[in-house]
Amino acid sequence: MEKATTPSGRSPWFWAGNYLASSAIIVVLKLTDAIPAPVAMILFLGAMGLLIPLVRAGERRNCANPVIIRYNRRFLIASFGYVLGLGIAIAVWNSYKLTSTMVFVIALLPTLPTFAMIWAMGRYLVEETDEYLRYRMVRAAIMSLGMVLAIGIFWGFLEMFELVPHIWAWWVLPVWAGGLGLAQLWMKVRGE
């Protein structure tokens, strides 16, 4: 079996570990107020640069088919757009007194890239020609959707009775994406 490496000899796990470690350090620095929000955002954009060699290293693996490669690239571009859009939106929000129309516009900056992420996931299902891989992804997506609905409803009532703090609705996407990973892990553990 061909070894999964980049020209520099690094595996995808190396880049994934570096990305996660960098992100964790930035989050800790921000939470401890060691760096201001704009600096954290710039550093996070830099850390996201590690996703490029991660995706390339993944593409060299035997299991990477052209559909997955396209999906990874689309998702990566959307992720960059999301971080950039969010950074600009927060900076503008903090610096200017905005009209409702302008608030609507800056809310679109991080929103549109997330629409692109959802589109990329949809395109993967349309373009995937392997029916078993498509079946697994659809199954994982439905399992994750069930998880999001269950957590959302439970949290909503806990929030209504003032037991937990309010959380923003955009959390549905990261929670769903996390659930997608958990569902795939669950199927792998069960040997499905």
Binding site: C63, N65, T129, D130, E131, Y132, L133
Partner: peptide, 11 residues
């Protein structure tokens, strides 16, 4: 068959 090895294994 033009499918993945995982598909063959699962079938």
């Amino acid at each position: 068959l033009g499918v993945s090895r995982q598909s063959v294994n699962a079938i």
